[in-house]
């Protein structure tokens, strides 16, 4: 099963990953990271295709994808 890891403390909350996820399983968190951003996180890992679109669009290299 694919695994997506977000380094949440590095996220700046830009939402580019959310906008490109084909399965719509990335959401912005309610809480904030220590930089004060609502960070991106994944809701349902089991639906992930490991397409890495999110990681490719992330300007801050927050996301790692494994399969």
């Amino acid at each position: 099963m694919p695994k997506v890891t977000f380094r949440e403390d590095r996220c700046k909350g830009c939402e580019l990953c959310v906008s490109v996820c084909p399965r719509k399983i990335i959401v912005m968190s309610e809480g904030m990271n220590k930089k004060g951003f609502h960070y991106a996180t994944i809701t349902d890992q089991s639906k992930c295709l490991a397409c890495a679109f999110c990681a490719r669009m992330c300007p801050d290299a927050v996301i790692e994808v494994e399969k």
Binding site: P2, R10, K12, G13, C14, E15, L16, K35, F37, A50, A52, A55, R56, M57, C58, P59, D60, A61, I63, E64, V65, E66, K67
Partner: peptide
């Protein structure tokens, strides 16, 4: 690994604004 941070990119937080594509 399908996608990971490249080694040539320093492991630091950049000063770029949120969503700025300089980071990409």
């Amino acid at each position: 690994k399908v996608f990971e941070r490249p080694k040539a990119l320093a492991d630091v937080v950049t000063h770029y604004c949120p969503g700025c594509t300089h980071g990409i």
